[in-house]
């Protein structure tokens, strides 16, 4: 297995750069109906509605750029199949960074997403002068909101009327996790281990 483009490694997942040959795998998981509206693709690409292979190609090209961001493919440990992506951005100000996570619905509830997100949080807090990491989740995405809370994020407001979905306006709930809160969580996890 080629490890040269692995960013981060956990017990359950490896995070590596997306490769050209991941296009079909990315298309497969991003096209899952449950991810409609929550794909966390680059701004210029559709977050909902039908996806095309051409869109995925543009997406992977965007994700290969490391300018003040990192988007990694999530692969289960010991396997090289892509089951999702986790990203971090510090474009505006590293003090106030943001993260996002997408896991193939067929691979959820196995701990992959939790570990991928924690690896990304660790990367940002250990390598960047970040003090606040925020997570943006649409208010209709109950599972995403519950997941954010389970990872220690606290709701800090809603960007109202972020868009329309199924005939109603929705907002983007923003949740944040401070550096000192993350450090405390890490310490507690380590002490408890």
């Amino acid at each position: 297995m080629d490890n040269s483009d692995v960013f981060l490694t956990g017990d359950k997942v490896r995070l590596r750069a997306f490769r050209e040959e991941d296009q079909d795998a990315a298309y497969s998981y991003l096209s899952q109906p449950e991810l409609d509206g929550r794909r966390y693709l680059p701004w210029k690409l559709p977050n909902s509605g039908p996806l095309t292979q051409a869109s995925i190609k543009v997406c992977l090209e965007d994700w290969s750029e490391r300018d003040k961001k990192m988007v990694a493919a999530i692969t289960p440990a010991g396997e090289d199949r892509v089951i999702g992506h986790v990203g971090g951005s510090w474009k505006w100000d590293p003090l106030l960074s943001s993260v996002w996570l997408v896991v193939d619905p067929r691979e959820q509830r196995k701990g992959f997403g939790s570990e991928a997100l924690q690896l990304m949080l660790g990367y940002i807090y250990e390598n960047l002068p970040a003090n606040n990491i925020s997570l943006w989740v649409s208010d209709w995405n109950e599972a995403g909101l519950a997941f954010g809370r389970s990872q220690g994020f606290k709701e800090c407001g809603v960007m109202r009327r972020a868009g329309l979905r199924d005939g109603a306006f929705y907002g983007e709930v923003v949740m944040d996790l401070l550096r000192r809160e993350w450090i405390k969580m890490e310490k507690e996890a380590h002490d408890g281990a």
Binding site: D93, L95, L96, N132, S134, G157, R160, V174, D176, L178
Partner: peptide, 20 residues
């Protein structure tokens, strides 16, 4: 105020909340 991201702004030596 719709959004208050805690301690996300550093301005003139102090941390403030980012507000939308």
């Amino acid at each position: 105020v719709a959004l208050r991201q805690r301690e996300g702004i550093f301005y003139d030596g102090r941390l403030y909340d980012n507000l939308v």
